[in-house]
Amino acid sequence: MLLLAAAAPARADNAEVTQLRLERTEEGVLLSASVSFELPPAVEDALLKGIPMFFVADASLLRDRWYWYDKHIAGGSRHMRLSYQPLTRRWRLQLSSQPIGNAGLTLGQSFDTQEEALAAVRNVSRWKIAELSDLEPDAKYSVDFRFRLDVSQLPRPFQIGAVGQSDWSIFAGRNQRLALENGR
């Protein structure tokens, strides 16, 4: 079942979640989202010099409770490492469920242009955030989605210069009420 959200998007200074959709399928609960942002000049300059940038998308599925804070049901993180290879003039994007530097399984893809690579970073498609067994039929749910540039994974000299600088800030988030239909 496809569920569309109707609330207005939350807007940050330089990024915006333009689309947020949740699907209930046999695979589980799948999230699709689009984030609109432009790279700040300092970030783009660092990328073109071969320094990789790290982006993180976080999603939490929350069940409404009247007596306390909403209960965290499920969720996850998607880590993305975008890099430019100056010698080959190709862009590389790596995806993982854990920070890229901590080994583990990563999926990689190469692109010819910066626009193609950023389009892959900006769009999250059919990301499994919960199992169907995690859901109660009569409960109401919301999803909390956040997307950001993770400066903590940059090389040390960039971390020191990036703290508190708006040129190194990309953040977008949206918390949206979603009702899962009972029928299949």
Rank of each mutant, 00 (worst) to 15 (best):
Arg184Ser: 14
Arg65Leu: 10
Ser60Gly: 13
Arg177Lys: 14
Leu30Gly: 00
Gln165Trp: 08
Leu105Trp: 05
Gln114Val: 10
Trp91Leu: 06
Phe55Leu: 07
Thr25Phe: 05
Ile170Tyr: 04
Tyr69Val: 08
Asn182Gln: 13
Leu2Asp: 11
Arg90Trp: 04
Asp13Thr: 08
Arg63Lys: 14
Pro99Gln: 07
Met53Thr: 11
Gln114Cys: 12
Trp168Met: 05
Asp150Phe: 02
Ala5Cys: 14
Leu93Thr: 05
Ala6Phe: 15
Asp45Trp: 12
Phe111Ser: 01
Val17Cys: 04
Leu93Cys: 08
Pro157Met: 10
Arg11Tyr: 03
Thr25Leu: 07
Arg184Leu: 15
His72Leu: 14
Val124Pro: 02
Phe37Ser: 02
Val35Met: 09
Tyr84Lys: 05
Arg156Lys: 12
Ser32Trp: 05
Gln159Tyr: 11
Arg126Tyr: 06
Leu118Lys: 04
Pro157Arg: 08
Ser152Cys: 04
Lys49Arg: 15
Pro40Trp: 06
Ala8Arg: 12
Asp70Val: 03
Gly75Glu: 07
Lys128Phe: 01
Leu105Pro: 02
Arg126Val: 00
Val43Ile: 13
Thr18Phe: 10
Leu105Glu: 13
Ala103Tyr: 06
Ile160Met: 12
Gly173His: 15
Leu47His: 05
Leu149Trp: 03
Glu136Lys: 13
Ser152Leu: 14
Phe147Tyr: 00
Gln85Cys: 06
Val163Tyr: 09
Phe147Ser: 02
Pro137Arg: 11
Thr88Ala: 15
Leu154Arg: 03
Pro52Ala: 09
Ala162Leu: 08
Glu181Phe: 11
Ala179Tyr: 08
Gln19Ile: 02
Val29Thr: 04
Trp66Phe: 13
Phe55Gln: 05
Ile100Cys: 07
Trp127Lys: 03
Thr88Gly: 01
Ala57Asn: 08
Leu22Tyr: 06
Ala15Ser: 03
Asn102Thr: 13
Thr25Met: 04
Ile100Asn: 02
Leu20Met: 02
Gln109Cys: 05
Val43Lys: 04
Val35Leu: 06
Asp144Ser: 15
Ala7Trp: 08
Gly28Thr: 02
Pro99Thr: 06
Arg122Tyr: 01
Ile73Lys: 04
Asn123Leu: 04
Gly164Ala: 09
Glu27Asp: 10
Phe37Gly: 03
Glu136Ala: 15
Val29Ser: 01
Val163Cys: 00
Leu93Glu: 01
Glu38Cys: 04
Arg174Gln: 12
Ser166His: 14
Phe37Asp: 00
Asp150Asn: 11
Gly104Glu: 10
Leu154Cys: 07
Met53Trp: 07
Ala162Pro: 01
